[in-house]
């Protein structure tokens, strides 16, 4: 059976191909997957997880992580900051049938025409040793007394002002780390996007599960937040225009100096008249069936 028996153009990508690409990106652009305070520029070995990078990243002296501000010690009259890090250490895709990783019981078996996402993330936060706190306390108390009667500021913010803008960040000796595994079930669908004439391949979230996070309300809350991040933050960015999936015919023609007096569009092969599923997630692949439509 030919790939194009029921369509004009067929494109497929195997889960192993995507996972290899993800690994290359994680190793060549680690700053997309690792976030930490500037302290770790000198002491990367103190991060929760050792960052695996490609040799060329080290040769180019590319940053291993994106530098973020310290987390403030809330309420302190002296601006104090704590070192932290957030690392995504693993990211994998599994197209139906599921065989790359096991889904947690909460998500059950990967349904047909679905894909699973596995992500492991670690969060680390510095915890000041008691002796640091004792050293700091007199200064903090003096500042608290000095500020009495002045305009107060919320405990969730650093005091404003040039002198106090830079927080005091104590050097970290050891991060307190915890890692969670996130599983999600997703599917693809064709759809339009306001302002674009062509069809887009979109990723939709069906279910999500954080493993080993407790208590239950906390897990529920974090899951809810991550869902929002995925649904409203990340997945819309992953939408792919149909032409980009195969080839941009209009652009190709333009480069060849052809002025086409006809409208050429790529459209998903209709379901179920053309194919039973489009896009189809099956045989460990994402398959797209596309028709070439020429309108005079």
């Amino acid at each position: 059976m030919a790939f194009t028996d029921r369509c004009d153009i067929f494109g497929s990508v195997h889960e192993e191909g995507i996972n290899r690409i993800v690994r290359h990106v994680m190793q060549q652009r680690p700053s997309l997957f690792n976030y930490a305070t500037a302290f770790f520029l000198q002491r990367p070995e103190l991060l929760c997880e050792r960052i695996k990078v490609a040799p060329e990243v080290l040769r180019a002296r590319d940053p291993l992580f994106s530098v973020e501000d310290p987390i403030p010690v809330l309420g302190s009259p002296v601006p104090l900051g704590l070192n932290w890090c957030l690392q995504f250490t693993d990211l994998q895709i599994d197209f139906h049938p599921g065989n790359v990783f096991d889904l947690p019981q909460e998500l059950g078996k990967l349904p047909a025409q679905r894909l699973a996402l596995y992500m492991r993330g670690c969060f680390g936060l510095d915890c000041l040793p008691e002796r640091f706190i004792r050293e700091l306390l007199p200064r903090v108390e003096a500042e608290a007394v000095a500020q009495r009667g002045k305009e107060t500021f919320g405990i969730a913010a650093f005091p404003q002002g040039d002198k106090l803008a830079e927080p005091i960040v104590f050097p970290t000796q050891k991060l307190l780390c915890f890692c969670v595994k996130l599983f999600a079930v997703l599917h693809f669908e064709w759809g339009t996007i306001p302002g674009s004439p062509q069809m887009w391949l979109k990723v939709r979230l069906d279910g999500l599960e954080l493993v080993d996070l407790g208590p239950a309300p906390l897990e529920e809350m974090v899951e809810c937040y991550i869902k929002m991040v995925l649904q409203l933050g990340i997945l819309p960015r992953l939408s792919v225009p149909i032409e980009a999936m195969v080839l941009n015919i209009t652009e190709l023609m333009r480069k060849q100096g052809l002025s086409i007096g006809e409208t050429i569009t790529l459209q998903p092969t209709p379901v179920p008249a053309g194919v039973p599923n489009n896009p189809a997630v099956e045989d460990d692949q994402l398959k797209a069936f596309v028709n070439l439509v020429v309108e005079v």
């Binding site: 030919a2 790939f3 194009t4 369509c7 004009d8 153009i9 067929f10 494109g11 497929s12 990508v13 195997h14 192993e16 191909g17 290899r20 195969v246 045989d283 460990d284 692949q285 070439l292 020429v294």
Partner: peptide, 17 residues
């Protein structure tokens, strides 16, 4: 099984032609 596959039908070649 290849990681990426692209197939173009003869019909599409003819129409493009």
């Amino acid at each position: 099984m290849a990681h990426f596959t692209l197939a173009v039908s003869e019909r599409t070649f003819q129409r493009s032609f």
